[in-house]
């Protein structure tokens, strides 16, 4: 192993350790915050009148809700480590099943939005730099300002009124395309903002000027010299945006009445099903941390200057 490889490995190893630390933090934090909620799932079912008092205490016994917090925490973290997310008391099903049932639709919405965002965002930014006097420059400005100023929540509700109520083009409940487009445009704006700004900055650097002086064509300069240098930022932005895309997907699901993680979260919160809320937060948090770690690693592989040791 050369010193170069060793340093790279140490860098990535340190990042991994930090990511794991934050993941453990999320698990601990979630457990204790969720435990602070007054009333548990058994109370809610008791109020609904579906359980007698003795049934309630039997249920608490079975779910381990009458044990001290620390014991509950140790039991539960042991379970999490083996990949068992536990049982939903409200839906009387394993949480892994519940998550498995809704995750595909949320992932599909998030992934579609992300794909639209990356394709549109990267394409218009590159075209705007390739053809600086074309319509693509105002297009980049427009989607950038759009994503900064128009929240997906309000545009989602407005398009429901316009397209579902007034024009009757889409159903008021269960439309997939419109929320995906709204989230996608929002994502495209954030990507275009970072990529375009960065490409324009690279454009003024010495090596681009010298390439120009050597007579390299504009298209070649943009595609071979500027774009690869600007992409590291975009990769980082995509990693960081993942949390936002998921949050957006959750909100959009509730607005457009789509089944998914958002709808499940709401049901779980209203039914005080801690175990489910816990599992959702942990799953999302760990996914986001892992995505950020991967994005960081890719950036450091591409650009050695970003390595911290």
């Amino acid at each position: 192993m050369s010193p170069h490889h060793f340093r790279l490995a140490a860098n990535i190893g340190l990042d991994l350790l930090r990511a794991l630390g934050v993941a453990v933090g999320i698990v601990v934090f979630t457990f204790f915050v969720i435990r602070m909620i007054p009333g548990d799932v058994v109370d809610v079912r008791g109020i609904e009148g579906s359980l007698t008092y003795s049934q309630q205490s039997a249920m608490r016994e079975e779910l381990g809700l009458n044990k001290p917090w620390l014991t509950q925490f140790l039991d539960w973290s042991g379970m999490i480590l083996t990949g068992d997310l536990g049982q939903s008391a409200r839906f009387a099903r394993p949480i892994a099943d519940l998550l498995g049932a809704v995750l595909p639709s949320t992932l599909l919405l998030g992934a579609t939005a992300l794909a639209i965002g990356i394709v549109v965002g990267v394409t218009v930014s590159v075209l705007a730099v390739l053809f600086p006097r074309s319509v693509f420059v105002p297009v980049v400005d427009f989607i950038t300002i759009w994503s900064i100023t128009v929240p997906t929540f309000s545009i989602g509700i407005m398009s429901l009124i316009v397209f579902a109520v007034w024009l009757g083009w889409i159903p008021a409940i269960g439309n997939f395309l419109v929320p995906a487009l709204i989230l996608g445009l929002d994502t495209a704006g954030s990507i275009a903002k970072a990529l375009h700004e960065d490409m324009r900055e690279v454009q003024t650097s010495e090596f681009v000027r010298s390439a120009r002086a050597r007579g390299v064509s504009h298209a070649r300069i943009v595609l071979r010299h500027i774009l690869p240098n600007a992409l590291t930022v975009t990769i980082a932005i995509i990693g960081l945006m993942l949390a936002g895309v998921f949050t957006g997907a959750i909100t959009m699901e509730v607005v457009f009445g789509l089944p998914g993680l958002g709808t499940l979260t709401l049901q779980a919160i209203k039914g005080r099903d801690y175990a489910v809320v816990q599992a959702i937060i942990i799953w999302l948090g760990v996914t986001v941390i892992f995505a950020n770690f991967v994005a960081d690693t890719i950036r450091k592989l591409i650009n050695p200057r970003l390595r911290t040791i």
Partner: peptide, 19 residues
Amino acid sequence: DLVRALPGILFALAFIVAF
């Protein structure tokens, strides 16, 4: 970093139900 890693709305949701 920990707070940043959690999607904002979800963090707020957990917080609000707790309090």
